[in-house]
Amino acid sequence: MESTTARHLPGGWQGAYCQPAMTWSAESSDEELMLHYRDGDAAAFDVLYARHRGGVYRYLLRQCREAAVAEELFQDVWMKLIRARAGYTVQARFATYLYRLAHNRWIDHFRRHRPGTVVSLDEEEGEAPFDPPDERERPQDEALDTRRQAARLMELVAELPVAQREAFLLQQEGGMSVEEVAQATGVTRETAKSRLRYAMSKLRKGMLEWR
């Protein structure tokens, strides 16, 4: 699994004062790379894309659960980033900016293909009915392999409510803090934190049998 982006600017967040360095390297921050790409350096974009391609793709894949749709949305997100490069300024961490684009694109798709569905992420704040693993299907062997544990975790993630799943995915794939999750999804910090807590709680309970 490629490393996904839990990068922070050295010396703290500089916000709009961040300027691109004269040269960049593979260790340069996302924001520096994006600024270089904005100024016409296509190679900087290659590095940036390599850092975030997997995370964005998995975020979309887990949200829409169809590979074809995920690919379409994935391409749309990156094309939007490319088109917006000339006007890019450093307002927040690049990952937040990128996943915000992905979030908006997924919401658009969700509303278009399920017009009757109200995407009220707040309504999923409450405890969703948690379906504990069936004791009869529980393998007798205590030494289950990691592969099966991972498969079970993926099942549990897929069963999470949309908002909680999104918060969890942004945290894991985007390497975001609670604040950044809130910023990317457009909710308050407390809401984002609540979603993350519920998601973690459900996953822990679901994986209890493997502990």
């Binding site: 699994m1 997997g54 990691t146 991972a150 498969a151 975790l153 894991q172 794939e173």
Partner: peptide
């Protein structure tokens, strides 16, 4: 565990 599983 999630990082090991998520490899798409």
């Amino acid at each position: 565990l999630y990082r090991e599983a998520a490899s798409e």
